[in-house]
């Protein structure tokens, strides 16, 4: 445990000293929140589009922001694998669990900070646009998105273990685009239906967005909260296990 925390501290410092992580993990989601709120104010009420209403938008932005956590986890792991730094650590007393949680824990902390900042920005926007947000719901959302934060960190960890420093960010960008589309963040994927909706139901992103939005609106229905929670928790655990197995096998292969 001590070595996990030592390694997690190192990774946290590395992430926080990279200005890009501040831009993409904190600033970009807030900018999107503001832009989409402006877009929402331009949509006539008669259109009946509530997707960009601040309560829905806040949940979507929370998940959108976590996708960048995935990107930075992938970059951190791939970068370390490319260099000789991990070679030094492989010959130290660190065990595979120290590596796995040493990478994931700082990203979980970053995700919690990120969602707190995004939701705080949502409160400010809600005051500006005159919409009343449920503060208890927002607090619950901070806890409700932790499983999806683990899921995205695990996906990033998996890609970082599988691909090199150049390929990993590209693959993550594809996942970000796909996740934002079929995850129902920028448009109503259920309303669109067809292949998009079917694909969305097969992937965990739509459930993650649903879970965040349900938490904010304190809607604890089975299909709105419990099922998405189950899917996201299962996906997070399964992907963390898969990423650990892949990392361990790559760890051995890297040293052959």
């Amino acid at each position: 445990m001590k070595r996990t925390m030592v390694f997690a501290k190192r990774n946290l410092i590395e992430v926080y000293r990279d200005p890009l992580s501040w831009i993409f993990c904190i600033a970009f989601p807030i900018v999107m929140l503001i832009i989409m709120s402006i877009v929402n104010s331009a949509i006539p009420k008669e259109a009946g589009n509530t997707l960009f209403r601040i309560d829905n938008l806040a949940g979507g932005i929370a998940i959108f922001g976590q996708m960048f956590i995935m990107l930075f986890t992938a970059i951190a792991v791939a970068k370390d694998r490319n260099g000789a730094f991990l070679t030094r650590l492989y010959s130290s007393p660190m065990k595979s669990g120290d590596f796995v949680w040493g990478y994931i824990l700082p990203m979980l902390l970053t995700a919690v900070i990120q969602v707190c900042v995004s939701l705080a920005a949502a409160i400010v926007v809600s005051i500006v646009v005159g919409y009343s947000l449920n503060i208890a719901g927002l607090a619950l959302a901070v806890a409700a998105v932790i499983p999806s934060a683990l899921m995205f960190s695990a996906i990033g960890f998996l890609f970082g273990a599988l691909f090199n420093e150049k390929a990993a960010p590209g693959i993550c960008s594809i996942i970000i685009s796909l996740g934002a589309m079929v995850g129902g963040i920028w448009f109503d994927v259920e309303g669109v239906g067809g292949f998009m909706y079917k694909l969305g139901r097969c992937l965990p992103f739509l459930y993650a967005t649903k879970l965040a939005r349900s938490a904010i609106s304190m809607d604890f229905g089975v299909s709105e909260f419990l099922v998405p929670l189950g899917v996201v928790v299962f996906s997070a655990i399964a992907l963390t296990i898969l990423a650990s197995i892949v990392f361990n096998s790559r760890m051995r292969a890297d040293q052959r």
Partner: peptide
């Protein structure tokens, strides 16, 4: 692993630390 120290061929330091 507790008994050995290694300085690998490529410089292996944490660049941002």
């Amino acid at each position: 692993k507790r008994l050995v120290g290694v300085s690998p061929q490529d410089t292996s330091v944490a660049e941002n630390l």
